[in-house]
Design a protein around this nucleic acid. Structure first.
Length: 427
DNA sequence: GATCCACAGGAAATAGTGGCTT
DNA sequence: AAGCCACTATTTCCTGTGGATC
């Protein structure tokens, strides 16, 4: 197979069609989501018939098919309308515009997305390149006005899909306005339907009643997949993506049950696991994926997830983690808060030699440290030696975290891993 | 059972930020 | 540009805590 001298070529190839295992692959057949599919179809049906669209709110944990189902039905809907239009005269045709916005992409800095930013996003989606508007500088009402005039320039039905709507934050102006824009007289020519997708259950609760009324006209709930369903999904993907000889029922079952247990029924995780297993097996030159490959892939994914969630933390917390990593390597953990604070101060000074930023006080650092404990990165142990020593906390990495992972997280964030001076840290 | 250590962690004060209005 | 308001991050201050020790 291929050039024997190549360092990239594997001896065997198990993956026949890698695309099927990609994150954004949309299966042509959605499995195990019949309830959601039929509910959702009912929501979209009016569009097909050229009637006013409905609004809907989809919610469920990550990796349980919200986006997949939506994409699938979107494609179907567009296709079916094309078919239908072919048989109709020009004035009977149904026009449908779909705007898919992932609200997460409109975060300014590390701040939340706002209704405002999403409105800007909608405008820019409709405008040609070069005619885009900037994300700042307009009065909010102006932006909404621009948005409405752009929308109204379209024809027929506009379906606005807001993926990850929870990222929009507390300001739900847009969610309030869009669904009722026509009633309020902002739009003349088009009918707007809004589909909100969210994996944050609390988001729905916190919406103002007005928004809940209109946006959550129909709610479609996505439950986590159970192990059997995951098996079905994986079997299907494996059939499409892998050579027949590359996998067995056993490893599919294993992958399903691992994903079910550790990722609370996320198909995304299960598929990622299958793909990882195949890649590891290929790398080892195995003819078939074995249990050990699946377990290795699982470890690797878990590892990657932890590194990623460490890298997501803000600077202060990363400094603290580095400080603990340092103490850990010196076998000085668990360490009391003041020890951690000294190490932390040195870390901060190391990264801000120009004095651009002073370390936080112990009290200030302690707040971040508590968050790290809450997130499960750090364990805190209570100590109390009474009158002979008093009461204090000691901190160490939890089982999930170790210095190597923190270091990797630093690399992922593009921070270099400076060594810190030992002097004075240990007393 | 009173004492007392050494800190945890609550509360208020303060500084800093960003958007909006005038 | 300046003032205002809301909100967040951090510091300062201080009281409360639990159990070993006497």
């Amino acid at each position: 197979m291929g050039d024997p001298d190549s360092i990239f070529a594997d001896d065997v190839e198990l993956i026949e069609d890698a695309e099927v295992l990609e994150e954004d692959y949309t299966p042509d057949k959605i499995l195990c989501r019949n309830d959601a599919l039929s509910d959702f179809t009912d929501v979209l049906k009016p569009i097909y018939k050229g009637r006013p669209p409905q609004n809907a709110f989809l919610y469920g944990d990550t990796g349980v098919g919200k986006t997949a189902v939506t994409k699938h039905l979107r494609n179907k809907l567009v296709n079916d309308i094309e078919q239908k239009n072919a048989d109709l005269s020009a004035d009977e045709r149904v026009t449908l515009n779909i705007i898919w916005i992932n609200c997460e992409n409109f975060t300014t800095g590390d701040h939340k997305t706002s209704s405002y930013q999403v409105a800007v996003g909608i405008v820019n989606r409709l405008r040609e390149q070069g005619n885009r508007i900037t994300g700042t500088g307009y009065a909010p009402q102006d932006v909404y006005d621009i948005m409405y005039s752009e929308l109204d320039a379209l024809d027929g039905t506009v379906l606005i899909i807001l993926d990850e709507v929870d990222k929009i934050g507390d300001d739900d102006t847009l969610l309030y306005e869009l669904p009722r824009s026509r009633d309020m007289g902002y739009l003349e020519n088009v009918r707007v339907g809004v589909i909100g997708i969210s994996n944050d259950y609390t988001f729905r609760k916190n919406l103002s009643p007005k928004v809940k009324d209109s946006l959550c006209e129909t709610e479609i709930k996505f439950a986590p997949y159970d192990a059997t369903e995951l098996t079905q999904i994986l079997m299907r993907r494996a059939e499409l993506a892998l050579y027949d000889s590359a996998y067995s029922r056993g490893i599919i079952d294993l992958a399903s049950s691992l994903a079910y247990k550790e990722a609370s029924g996320s198909a995304r995780r299960a598929i990622r696991l299958l793909r990882g297993s195949a890649e590891i097996a290929e790398g080892e030159g195995a003819e078939q994926i074995a249990e050990s490959h699946v377990r290795k892939a699982d470890k690797k994914i878990e590892y990657g997830n932890i590194v990623e969630s460490i890298a997501d933390q803000d600077d202060e917390k990363l400094y603290i983690l580095k400080a603990i990593a340092h103490l850990d390597l010196l076998n000085k953990t668990p360490a009391r808060t003041r020890t951690v604070h000294r190490a932390y101060s040195r870390v901060v000074q190391g990264y801000n030699e120009d004095g651009a930023k002073d370390p936080l006080t112990q009290r200030g650092m302690f707040n971040h440290l508590s968050k790290l404990v809450m997130f499960g990165f750090v364990n805190t142990i209570d100590r109390n030696k009474g009158a002979g020593g008093g009461q204090w906390n000691e901190h160490e990495f939890s089982d999930d975290v170790d210095p190597a992972k923190v270091k990797e997280a630093y690399e992922e964030r593009g921070l270099n891993w400076k060594s810190i001076k030992t002097r004075g840290v240990d007393r």
